[in-house]
Every structure is written in structure tokens, then in C-alpha cells.
Nucleic acid binder design. Structure first.
Lengths: 219, 219
DNA sequence: GCCCGCCGGATCGCATACGATAACCTGTGT
DNA sequence: ACACAGGTTATCGTATGCGATCCGGCGGGC
């Protein structure tokens, strides 16, 4: 059996990610303890970890609350993710098997279908799956962990700040195909890194332009 | 007064960073508690945070030990740091005041002196100071926090894996000067990012080549 | 009417205590 | 002499309890 600290951690993080505990939600330790019949200590420890990972904020003698992100945080996260993922994709290049590439192409094909079906949720899930399966091959555990965290953060922020750009999805599928071609052709690392970084920055730019057109400030 | 959890955290992290608790050192909670008259709970909580930050490893029902890094970890960290710092430096560009640039130039001048005095410790401290003062101006707290952590990790690793490249220090000072010129001239973000990234990758390449020449594998 | 200090409830911070787990050591049978 | 079972010890995991801290409301002074 997993330790209670892990149970608490998974439960809290799950509820934060799925939106049960939205931004600003107060996490009262005693209350959580009473609801779950788990004493306060495992809760406290799990919160320390969540705090270090940036999911909650703990103020001494006051309490913990789920972190809130301003609109600019989406921009900042994408900007960072572009660099991290560019590097990780280039590093993963050598490790990808023919099977991996075939799987990635299949996922990209499904994205095309989701697009035709006007299914944005599925599209977005497949998109994450596509990139995740690639960068998880990068031989750098620390980098992969950072990426997982930033992707999760992105999903969390997306729920509060609506980010969308019409037409971007079509282009995104095309860019995925181009990226896969580069990977298959064993292009040099710099080329792959630049393409992967550019891909993410293109999304960022498209959303930013669209937001500006609507009069929203994402900064 | 700071909470005991913070005291424990600072104490542990300090001892890990200054080498008192080297890689692999076992952290026995009861023992720490007896030595300091602080009960186990603040120690446990501080360790959760250190674990999340990657400084220690906790195995359930067994205990905590200071993380150990293989030789390749230095390479991986530099590789990552190059991207993060490239971005942060470019972002900081607009925020830097004339005074900041003057300070940076002064530090770079002192690096020159340290070089002439054959004082590698001082040189390395000034180098960190130089880059830190620049990237701390980047308007992205999360990114800055990541950078601080990676720099600290680098220092920690450096103690176990000797990393050195003859002649690199001279070139480094010159690259700093060139970078400052770019910043002063308000060069565009891409140019600055590339230069800052390149600067760090140059060090990485130089050290790697030197290690290979010595027959060491850093991978 | 407004400001300031006091008070009570909610909540956190931490020490103590005990049960649970894993690593080690020891002794026995072969 | 070796393999294995059993007990032993060091250490962790977590429940309970109490003192400390903060926040919000109330009443007195100006």
C-alpha cells in the first residue's frame, strides 16, 4: 500500500488538475483530515510538495490555497515550454524507433479526424499525447519532469484564460507532419530543435494575435 | 520568527550546498531531531520540499539521502541552462537599466582581474553573479526560480565532477563583453537569446572537448 | 463618526507517542 | 561451511493533543 502522504498528494493534485479545487480555493488541513480520516500530517507533507511544484501557495500560520495565474502566465509558460520542448525533441530524435514515429503519425492522423469532427477537446488531448510521447524519449529525466510539469500547468491555466486561435489547428497538424519528416530523415539536432521550438511559438503568436484582435490583453 | 520548517529547510539545503552533506549522505530524521531539539515533523516537511526540488531522494520506509549525480548530469544541466538562460537574458534585455549594465561591466572587469590573479574560485563566483544579476531582471518569476535552482544544482555537481577547460575563461570574459554590447545596443530578442545560449554552450563544448582529450567521458 | 486596542474562534505549528516497516544479525539445520 | 528462518533493532509513518498565531468583530476613547 502506498503511504498516506502519497495518497493525499495524488488526491489533491488530481482535484486541482480536474478543476474541483479551482484557483484560490482554500485547502483547510483539518477539514481534509476529517473528510478522509487521514490525520493532518500526511496532508501537510503532500502540500509541501505541491507548494514546491508551484501548484499551491502556503502562507505560514494562515493556510494553503490553490495558486492563481494571471492571463500572462499562459504566455510565459508557452514561451518557456517552446525552449524546453525544442531541446527535448532534438534530444529524443536519436532515441525514436520506427514504431514511435509510426505511432506519432497515427496520433497526428487522429488529430486530423478530431479537427474534421469539430472536437476541440479531443484535439487538444491528442496534441498533448503527440508531444508527450516524443519528449519522453529524451535521455534526460530532469528535463522530462520539468516538461510534464509545465504541460500540466498549461492545462490548468487554460481553464481560466481562454486561449484560442482560429485556423491554427490545421496548421498545427501540418507542422507536426513536417516535424516527423525531420525526425525520420535524422535531420541534425539544431534543425529539429528550431522546428519544434518554432512550432510552439507559432501557436503562441497565433493566439496572441487573435487575442489582440479581440481586444484582450494576454500580457 | 521563521517557522521551524523553514529553519530545517535552510539548514539542510545549506549543508547540502556547502558540501557538509555530500552526495549519498543519509539524512536520519530522528538523529537530526535530537541534534537540534526540533521534532521530526518540521524535518519531514522540509525534506518533502527538498525532494520536490531534486536535492534529496526519499524512499518510503527506508529514508532520505542526498541526491547523487553522475558525470553526465553536469552536461545535461549545462545544456538545459543554456536554453533557459538564453530566454531569460533576452527577456531581461528591455528591463536592464544603464546602471545594471554598468554594474555588469564592472563585474566582468573584476573577472578579468581574478583571471590575472589565477583565482578560479573568485572567477567562478563572479561569473555566477554576472549572469544572475542579468537574468533576475527577466519579468518571469517562475523562469527565474528555475534558473536559480539549476545554477545551484550546477555548483553542487561541480564539486564531484571536475569540469575545466584551459583558456576558456579568457574567451568567456570576451563573450560577456560582446553580450553586454548587444544588450546596450538594444539588439533584437532573438539575437540576444542566441548569443546568451551560445555563450553557455561554448563553455559546455570546451569542457567536453577537454574531457575527451583527457580520456574522461562526461556523457 | 472614526480609529484603535482587546477578545474569541478558527486554524496552523509542533512535540510526543506508538504502531509499522525494512534491514540486519544470529543461530540452527543440513 | 552454507542457506535460510526467526528475532532484533533502527528508522520511518501517522494519530493525537496542546500551545501559538492570525483574523474579524466589538466596544471604548477621541
Amino acid at each position: 500500500m502506498a503511504t498516506r502522504t502519497e495518497v493525499c498528494y495524488d488526491l489533491l493534485k488530481g482535484r486541482i488538475l480536474d478543476g474541483t479545487y479551482g484557483p484560490g480555493h482554500r485547502l483547510v488541513i483539518d477539514q481534509l483530515g476529517r473528510e478522509t480520516n487521514i490525520s493532518t500530517i500526511p496532508w501537510r507533507e503532500s502540500m509541501r510538495r505541491l507548494e514546491a511544484e508551484g501548484w499551491i501557495e502556503i502562507i505560514p500560520n494562515v493556510g494553503a490555497r490553490v495558486a492563481t495565474f494571471d492571463a500572462g502566465e499562459w504566455t510565459r509558460t508557452m514561451r518557456l515550454l517552446a525552449r524546453l520542448e525544442g531541446l527535448a525533441t532534438a534530444l529524443a530524435a536519436e532515441e525514436l524507433t520506427a514504431q514511435d514515429l509510426a505511432d506519432a503519425r497515427r496520433i497526428n492522423g487522429e488529430m486530423s479526424e478530431a479537427l474534421a469532427d469539430f472536437d476541440p477537446l479531443r484535439f487538444s488531448q491528442l496534441n498533448r499525447q503527440f508531444h508527450t510521447m516524443i519528449f519522453h524519449r529524451a535521455p534526460d529525466k530532469h528535463l522530462v519532469a520539468l516538461l510534464d510539469n509545465e504541460w500540466a500547468r498549461l492545462d490548468f491555466i487554460r481553464r481560466s484564460a481562454f486561449t484560442h486561435a482560429p485556423g491554427r489547428a490545421v496548421q498545427s497538424v501540418a507542422e507536426h507532419a513536417a516535424l516527423l519528416d525531420l525526425l525520420e530523415a535524422r535531420a541534425d539536432a539544431d534543425t529539429i530543435e528550431t522546428a519544434a521550438r518554432r512550432h510552439k511559438l507559432n501557436t503562441l503568436d497565433a493566439v496572441t494575435r487573435h487575442a489582440v484582435a479581440l481586444g484582450n490583453a494576454l500580457a
